[in-house]
Design a binder for these strands. Structure first.
Lengths: 326, 326
DNA sequence: TAAAAATTGTCAAACGTTTGACAATTATAA
DNA sequence: TTATAATTGTCAAACGTTTGACAATTTTTA
């Protein structure tokens, strides 16, 4: 690959001049610039980022740590992150941590080794200490990591309230929550709390069913079938849309009609669900806004490592009413 | 951040020794190794990848260029790529090129500048020349890029045949293909050819409807509605599953029953579709195998830039029979 | 105990850039 | 024409590693 010296030789100028052209530094005549650009084009030259970064420039790389990308919610989030960061001249290293603490640790180490400019963390298998000693700008999505790391999330509590309201409004009496097995710091806790608090107002009964996040759709389907076949509930709140789809699937298999026999509210409201399952009533998280805020904060910290930021940024959610709560 | 020299000082050895420990090079006593590792742990030291790579080591980074990641097919593919590459010690820079040639070009430049070890290209807005002058190991998914770049794909032709067979078998007479507006090099062409060739055997009639890939689901839905409401077709082959979901949606809205009034076959058969839409008959691409082959080839080229590879690697597809062709 | 082997150290060049100091040349303005 | 400004060049250090040559020291083996 061509180096700066090759360009200098071909353009008939000094290496310093080439560097000046690249960095637009010092004073340069149009003629020289043209010559240099010409040479660059001719050799298809790309300044070696490694060398530049080593010399102190930013890497223009952001690490993105998420549970995965095959799920529509995180898929859309990654897409947004990529899109918005690209426009600001940054690229992303994608880290799917799954629910594997060791992998997340490895990735964290690697991101440090690669001197990324910052990290967006949306996966949280690790303890606080591990994130504290990273020493890079970090923004967290939806979970507490450490006192210095700002959290961006949507209003989970209100989302829970909205879900409850929708079910109550549609005349459900025997309510059921289906949620992932919840970690202590999990955001879904607030969804539950909001839901429960709202229900207190109408004095209705409800049950909670926990299904591990890592359960396959088949397993989840079985548990849901078990639940539905008792025919004891007439209103269900799933804390994610995919689980809600399984409920629809199982209900249909059991000959139960939605919304006549059972009402249903999901959570997340991704573009995917809105386009391909508009029938589902769901609480929409404003993914694009969440990402916008995360990136804004992150880049502030990239420019100034010690810049003061709030601890928490909470964005509003919105109920999308479909036919499952008609 | 701690440097190699800091470690040397803390461990009371020379910088060379530390480097030897890191690279497991030369001869070293257990005692020294322990001391050095101890110091590394104490300072949370990570060898600067930039410096290492500059000195000639690999970057352990692979660029992945795809149309996007919010679509379940590419979402699952990225997940596979990440998963398999991680196990081999590589990380990925994710490049969503969409259908934007300029963006793809930018990303290609950036990947060169960052000295990635190789590239997996699954997005194809650019001409051959652009890929030829990259000078890095590249593997292409499902599209011809240049004579030196191996193509890995699944058997699109046979997939088309399978789809046709399924529709014919289910008694459809008036067939319709719904596909993306096709580029000359697009793999969906082979799907169509296979479909058409198979139909010739039974002497059935069919029509082709093209809908641009970049059309929103709403627009697609409208076109499908228009088509269905004529009630002239009784068997539809969609060259991707998401479009098939829209057909189901529109059919239901129009009071048409699937499969009684119209039969339907999709394409891709992602985990997502298999779990959340098992009712859909579809042709499954073996994503995991495709990725395995791509990575295998790519890493061969990473180790030896000039290693000889076949031009084409075609993996088998499989019909998954659901209820839409019952 | 002497010879051989293993361990560690010193030193320096190299990777490809950026940047500052300074000098030399060229162009421009008074 | 001269003084001034703009342009370009030379040189070298720095970024954090790796690696080879070589020497010095310690340990092991015979």
């Amino acid at each position: 690959m061509a180096t700066l010296d090759d360009i200098a030789k071909l353009a008939g100028v000094s290496a310093t001049t080439v560097s000046r052209v690249i960095n637009n530094y010092g004073s340069l005549s149009e003629k020289t610039k043209t010559k240099v650009f010409e040479a660059m084009r001719e050799l298809n030259y790309q300044p070696n980022s490694l060398a530049r970064s080593l010399k102190g420039k930013k890497t223009q790389l952001i690490g993105v740590i998420l549970p995965g990308v095959s799920n529509p919610f995180f898929g859309q989030m990654v897409q947004e992150i990529e899109d918005q960061l690209f426009k600001k001249g940054f690229r992303i290293i994608l880290c799917n941590a799954g629910s594997d603490a060791e992998k997340e640790r490895d990735y964290l180490r690697m991101l440090m080794a690669n001197r990324v400019d910052g990290i967006i963390a949306g996966s949280h298998n690790l303890g606080i200490e591990e994130y504290q000693k990273v020493g890079l700008p970090i923004i967290s999505f939806d979970r507490y990591l450490s006192d210095e790391i700002p959290i961006v999330s949507s209003d989970n509590y209100h989302g829970g309230e909205l879900a409850a309201q929708a079910l109550v409004r549609s005349g459900s009496k025997k309510l059921q929550i289906i949620t992932g097995a919840n970690h202590p710091n999990s955001p879904t806790n607030a969804r539950l709390t909001g839901f429960k608090d709202e229900l207190k107002k109408s004095d209705l009964d409800f049950d909670v069913m926990e299904i591990s996040f890592s359960a396959t759709p088949n397993i989840k389907g079985l548990k849901i079938k078990e639940l539905l076949s008792k025919r004891e509930v007439d209103g269900i709140f799933c804390t994610d849309d995919l689980t809600a789809l399984l409920v629809i699937q199982q209900a249909k298999a059991l000959g139960m009609r939605v919304p006549e026999d059972v009402r249903l509210v999901g959570y997340d409201g991704t573009n995917f669900i809105q386009s391909y399952h508009p029938e589902l009533t769901t609480v929409m998280q404003p993914i694009s806004d969440i990402v916008m805020v995360m990136i804004d904060l992150l880049l502030k910290r990239v420019d100034d490592h010690d810049c003061e930021l709030e601890d928490n940024y909470v964005l509003p959610v919105k109920l999308i009413t479909g036919e499952t709560t008609a």
